[in-house]
């Protein structure tokens, strides 16, 4: 029997176009406009405002008072140059995270899907177990080993961060897919969906909230880990820390540490907001 003869079963609906109803309005990335409540306003502003205050304090209390000609000024330039180098470090830091997390998603999502497929399912526990052990190796050790064969520089840091981000994404992709109600899969199979259709139209959309949570975790952890990249010359906020330590300049160490923390908080906050938008409330129910 071919497809055509199947669609021949299709009842007696005449092509009366007028009857067609208005299609449902899909919520876009930014949803409908609703007048924001106090809670919305707070939810959207508290974290960014706090972070701006912290950055302003760092700027006014730690960067502005650098005396010209001091050792810090030599290291970081004048305060103007100092501010410039903070921006440069921020860009470097972000680049490390975005590239490593992006590459990790590109590899970990297919891997997570693969271990939930028939034939691999029996081994998924083993694979995740090995990956778990990998995760428990300290990041500084991974950096050191990676430096052994990749040398120093940003690409080594990106490799280590990438490796580190894999596990949460693989694990959450696999868990998310495995948690999909088997009755839903059975109904889909029974209605004649192909494995590919079930994956793309049912499993991935339903697993997405869990998958996204894994990506968010990976990205936020990477913000902190990337600070270590400075040890192997990858730049980023870590530069202030490792320069400040031998010089015993607490102010520099604090600038590096505080800015890393601010970036981690902001990263988590932004991704949280993205998650709220991308994950339809219905998929959570």
């Amino acid at each position: 029997m071919d497809e055509k003869s199947v669609s021949g079963y299709s009842g007696s609906v005449d092509p009366d176009e007028e009857f067609s109803l208005q299609p449902a309005k899909k919520k876009g990335l930014f949803g409908r406009f609703d007048f924001p409540s106090v809670n919305d306003v707070l939810g959207w502003t508290v974290i960014p405002v706090l972070m701006i205050i912290v950055v302003m304090l760092v700027y006014s209390q730690m960067l502005l008072p650098i005396e010209p000609g001091s050792m810090e000024a030599n290291m970081m330039g004048s305060w103007e140059v100092g501010f410039g180098s903070v921006l440069d470090a921020a860009v470097e830091h972000l680049r490390l995270i975005l590239i490593s997390t992006g590459l990790a998603i590109a590899v970990a999502v297919p891997a997570g899907i693969l271990i939930t497929r028939q034939g691999f399912r029996d081994f998924s526990g083993l694979i995740l177990g090995v990956a778990n052990i990998g995760q428990s190796v300290p990041s500084i050790a991974i950096l050191a080993v990676a430096m052994g064969f990749l040398g120093i520089g940003a690409k080594t840091a990106i490799f280590a961060l990438w490796l580190y981000a894999l596990l949460p994404i693989v694990r959450n992709t696999a868990t998310g897919i495995e948690e999909v109600d088997p009755n839903i899969i059975e109904a889909a199979t029974g209605m004649g969906m192909t494995n590919r259709q079930i994956l793309l139209q049912i499993e991935l959309p339903l697993a997405f909230p869990v998958m996204f949570a894994g990506m968010r975790t990976a990205a936020v952890i990477n913000v902190g880990t990337a600070a270590l990249g400075a040890f192997i010359g990858a730049g980023g906020f870590g530069t202030f820390i490792i320069t400040g330590i031998p010089l015993s300049r607490e102010r520099m160490i604090l600038v590096g540490a505080i800015l890393t923390a601010v970036l981690a908080v902001l990263m988590d906050w932004i991704l949280g907001k993205v998650e709220d938008r991308l994950v339809a409330p219905t998929a959570r129910a």
Partner: peptide, 9 residues
Amino acid sequence: IQQIGLFPH
């Protein structure tokens, strides 16, 4: 089927 299996999304 009994569990219906409607697609929640």
